Amino acid sequence: MTPAFWCIVIAIFMNYLLAGLGGWLTTQQTGRLDIRYPRLQAQSLTGMAARVNAAQANSWEILTVFACSVFIAHLAGVPASQSALPAYLFIASRILYCACYTFNLIPWRTVVFVVGIFACLWLIKMAASYSG
Rank of each mutant, 00 (worst) to 15 (best):
F66K: 00
Q41C: 02
P38K: 00
L89G: 13
S129K: 14
I91P: 06
A4R: 00
G132M: 11
C100F: 07
W6S: 02
C7T: 14
G132H: 12
A4E: 12
R109P: 00
T27R: 12
Y16G: 14
M14C: 08
G23S: 06
R94S: 09
R94W: 02
A4W: 00
A80E: 08
T102V: 04
L75K: 02
M14D: 03
L25H: 05
C68D: 07
R109V: 10
I91Y: 04
Y37M: 09
L25K: 08
P3Q: 07
W60D: 05
L40C: 02
A49M: 03
T30V: 09
A54I: 09
V70I: 02
C100K: 01
T2Q: 03
L96D: 00
L33Q: 10
R94K: 11
A99L: 05
A76I: 08
A80I: 00
H74F: 12
L33R: 13
C98D: 02
V115H: 07
L18N: 05
A99V: 04
S83H: 04
G47H: 02
Q82D: 13
I10F: 03
D34E: 11
P86A: 04
G116D: 06
R32V: 11
V111R: 03
Y101W: 06
F71Q: 01
Y130N: 11
S131E: 11
F13R: 06
P86E: 01
P107V: 06
L85V: 13
L25I: 05
I12V: 15
V115M: 14
Y37P: 00
G77C: 05
E61F: 10
L18T: 01
N53H: 15
L21M: 05
V114P: 04
Y37T: 09
G20E: 02
A92S: 13
G77L: 04
Q82F: 13
S93A: 15
L63G: 14
P3F: 02
P107H: 02
Y97A: 04
K125E: 08
A55V: 10
Q29C: 01
E61D: 07
F113W: 15
T46Q: 15
W6M: 08
C100P: 03
L18P: 03
V65T: 11
P107W: 00
V114G: 06
Q56P: 09
Q28C: 11
R51V: 01
T26W: 02
A119S: 15
M1N: 07
H74Q: 13
T30P: 00
D34S: 07
Y37I: 01
N53M: 14
L75D: 10
L33Y: 14
G77P: 07
A67V: 01
Q43V: 12
R39Q: 10
I62S: 15
A80H: 04
P79N: 09
V65L: 15
W6L: 13
I35N: 09
A80R: 02
G31Q: 04
P107C: 08
